[in-house]
Design a protein around this nucleic acid. Structure first.
Length: 458
RNA sequence: GUGGCCAUAGCUCAGUUGGUUAGAGCACCAGAUUGUGGUUCUGGGGGUCGUGGGUUCGAACCCCAUUGGCCACCCCA
């Protein structure tokens, strides 16, 4: 057999039929719940203007944006411009003469861009969901791909915490329905982190502080202190920080700890109130357990209020399978201030990996064709085909074996394709004008008339 | 962007200190079986050992380069 010599780009994947069915199971579940909660679908282009994306995800984020090379650079009249632009690029600056478009990095910023462009026509609060691929120029590793899907639900144009409350319920509904019961939903508030920054180092240290404490569970408190010491925090400030990091226990204990440390500041007080509200609001749904995690920070710097993150069950070592939070003024970045919002995201590819590892996909996910009509001869297959068409008309997925072959072969085909029923029409059935229907799962078979086959419940 | 591990049949892998014609299981095809699959038995096809170079009488094995994959750091879904 000839050796194929083709490949696909690093970090991308083909999805075979079985995988697509499983992925669709996840997509369908999420979509159904988004719709149940009153969200409307939206799609935006794969690429955006580079300007739209740059500077929205932090310094690291900018590096991970896939840029698209402009066309026509080799046109003689562009060559000089292109050379100059390339020099610019080498010194770390982007240049429109070389690249002005990029693949989208997430769904939130393109959504903000959309809202900014269409705010005049939208009904607020605008609740949209979006399920599309995004691209990141990251090195692939476990649970990390260069092309992956996000499923986002955002509400813009509304300030009330009822929105956060709904989003928390969406997380719970989706994970429950997918069978991922051991997930952890962690919440925190940027206001609390801002209050912390204010009393230890100043507000301009907010990003440094959030980045450092976000690593706490990985590197331990000592390293966090070290890192922040290098960022210029003094002993007294580090002591406050240590006090903050030591806050743990039940949600109530954490709240009182936070209250003692930050309750005097305006931001701290607000953050604590918001977390309390969200916690209280879930008490009527005991299965929905949220945990306050003071060390939850989240990388994206546009968040301003409640932030949340869904973690995969500990055993699978996948980390975050979803995240989100409130932002006060995302559209302000695009010249339309005053539209606050809050949203969440599901990482489908990681959810898939988690479900695969835990064996959570139902067996029925991979049933496509319900009935295989056997092909046992010319006249036989003629009768099969006609009955099959009638069944298809009744919305039952069927296929007929592509050629006359031994039953053995046709059974094996059905088995491999996970087809639950075989409709056998051979010489005998042809003469008696009936159909042998075999359930391949139980091995039982029965003789049916055409009429009874057409109303059979498969 | 930095570092570690790996690459042998369609898939999962074995292959001794470098030594004749590179193996196994699964999968595939055919037969045992002319109307009954999943189990079994028999036979068969399939490999430029990721790619390029080097060392050697001789390389899947050693060396260099390159590409790809996995994993970790950074960061993140």
């Amino acid at each position: 057999m000839a050796k194929v010599n083709v490949s696909i780009p690093q970090g991308t994947r083909d999805f075979g039929p079985e995988t697509v069915r499983k992925r669709n199971f996840i997509f369908n579940t999420i979509r159904e719940i988004f719709e149940q909660y009153g969200f409307q679908p939206l799609e935006t282009p794969a690429m955006e203007n580079l300007d739209t994306l740059m500077g929205k995800y932090g310094e690291e984020g900018d590096k991970l944006i896939f840029k698209i090379l402009n066309n026509g650079l080799n046109d003689p009249k562009n060559i000089e411009k292109a050379k100059k632009a390339f020099q610019n690029l080498l010194s770390g600056k982007n240049d429109k003469d070389l690249t002005e478009r990029a693949l989208k990095y997430d769904l939130t910023i393109p959504f903000a861009r959309y809202v900014a462009m269409h705010h005049g026509q939208l009904v607020f609060p605008f609740k949209r969901y979006q399920m599309q691929p995004v691209w990141r120029a990251d090195r692939p590793q476990k649970g990390r791909y260069r092309e992956f899907y996000q499923c986002d639900a955002d509400i813009v144009g509304s300030n009330t915490l009822l929105n956060e409350r709904e989003l928390v319920h969406i997380y719970h509904a989706v994970f429950s329905q997918l069978g991922i019961h051991e997930y952890a939903l962690k919440i925190n508030s940027r206001k609390i982190l801002a209050a912390l920054a204010a009393i230890c180092g100043g507000e301009e240290k907010l990003t440094d502080i959030t980045v450092a404490i976000d690593k706490l569970d990985k590197v331990g408190p000592e390293k966090v202190r070290e890192e922040l010491s290098q960022k210029g925090l003094n002993e007294k400030q580090l002591a406050i920080l240590s006090g903050y990091l030591a806050i743990s226990g039940s949600n109530a204990e954490i709240l009182s700890g936070l209250s003692a440390l930050l309750g005097q500041t305006v931001a701290g007080k607000e953050g604590i109130q918001e977390l309390s509200y969200l916690l209280d609001s879930t008490k009527t749904t005991p299965a929905l357990r949220i945990m306050i995690d003071p060390t939850l920070a989240r990388g994206l710097n546009y968040y301003t209020g409640i932030i949340l993150e869904a973690k995969a069950p500990e055993t699978v070592k996948m980390g975050s399978i979803g995240g989100g939070g409130r932002y006060d003024d995302l559209t302000g970045l695009f010249g339309v201030p005053g539209i606050p919002g809050v949203g969440i995201s599901f990482g489908v590819d990681r959810i898939y990996d988690v479900m695969e590892e835990l064996g959570l996909f139902p067996e029925t996910v991979n049933v496509g064709t319900r009935v295989l009509f056997f092909n046992l001869g010319e006249a036989e297959s003629e009768m099969s085909f006609n009955i099959m068409q009638a069944l298809r008309y009744k919305k039952i997925a069927c296929e007929i074996f592509h050629e006359t072959a031994k039953m053995d072969k046709q059974f094996k085909y059905a088995e491999k394709k996970n087809i639950p029923y075989a409709a056998i029409i051979g010489a005998r059935e042809l003469a008696e004008k009936n159909i042998t229907l075999k359930n391949l799962h139980t091995g039982k078979q029965e003789t049916l008339t055409t009429e009874s086959l057409l109303i059979y419940s498969f």
